[in-house]
């Protein structure tokens, strides 16, 4: 049997909203350590890796490792029926072909239960190498979302150039071109508003902005986003999930022929 209870069910709903544009169905790997998921988008340009550690749940029980094939599209629809302060319990009974989502209102006066049929999915796993990135940019996730949305107006690609002083996002297309430059914050009251850059080597990388905009669907999970970059290496775009885990999106760059 698998059962995991999350006092703030809305966190789980935000995780699903963060994933479901990039991947419509995925296999969840459940073990005693927690829940993990790795999936590529249908064009195999981007990869997402999710970790939710067991100690982040209010209660967690996993008697044996399980691989659960789940339609994220359907799960998202079910989770929309959850109240914003509801407690969420996810359960898979032994020998069952369904996942049960139970939602309980804070005053314990309303209790809803939905079942979703599990799917048999072919999943390929990729080995993600440990990388010492040349540059890590930390910035407010709302700012990153706004920049990606604005860049998409100008063109299909965005070039991210990072130096020790700042990071520049630039795009050009048929309508024209533009760029936004952020300097490293020197003095901020709140850490979550800061832009910080850890740099060993300057980098300039070009990415399809459409994917960055899909990654930004996970921005409501976290005030800050980390962008880790090295030349000729996929970008790692990370949103923390509270203190229980993270969503890491990897995006292959566009490379000059």
């Amino acid at each position: 049997m698998f059962e995991a209870r999350l006092a703030q069910g809305s966190i789980f709903a935000k995780v699903i909203e963060g994933l479901r544009e990039l991947v419509t169905e995925a296999t969840w790997e459940c073990s005693g350590n927690g829940i993990t998921l790795q999936a590529m988008d249908s064009s195999h340009v981007a990869l997402v890796s999710l970790v939710l550690r067991s100690d982040g749940f209010e209660t967690y029980r996993c008697d044996r490792n399980m691989s659960l094939g789940i339609s994220l599209t359907s799960m998202s629809k079910v989770l929309k029926m959850m109240g914003k302060d509801d407690t969420l319990t996810i359960r898979v009974n032994d020998d069952s072909d369904a996942i049960v989502l139970s939602m309980e209102s804070q005053n314990q006066e309303e209790f809803a239960e939905y079942e979703l049929r599990l799917m048999d999915l072919d999943s390929e796993h990729l080995g993600i190498p440990d990388t010492d990135y040349s540059c890590v940019v930390k910035m407010p996730s709302t700012k990153f979302s706004r920049i990606c949305r604005d860049m998409a107006i100008l063109g299909d690609s965005v070039t991210i150039c990072s130096t020790k002083d700042g990071v520049k996002f630039g795009a050009k297309g048929d309508v024209g071109q533009g760029s936004i430059r952020l300097n490293q914050s020197t003095n901020v009251d709140k850490e979550e508003d800061a832009v910080s850059i850890e740099l060993r080597e300057a980098v300039a990388l070009t990415f399809a902005v459409r994917y960055l905009n899909m990654f930004c669907k996970a921005a409501p999970l976290s005030n800050q986003v980390n962008l880790s970059m090295s030349e000729d290496t996929p970008l790692m775009c990370e949103f923390k999930v509270g203190d229980m885990g993270h969503i890491r999106f990897y995006l292959a760059p566009k490379i000059e022929d």
Binding site: H44, V45, L47, H125, L126, G127, I128, P234, P253, E256
Partner: peptide
């Protein structure tokens, strides 16, 4: 011209 690489070009299949 720039070419979009696949993620499998960088990360090997397990």
């Amino acid at each position: 011209t720039m070419t979009q690489k696949s993620i499998t070009f960088f990360f090997g299949k397990k």
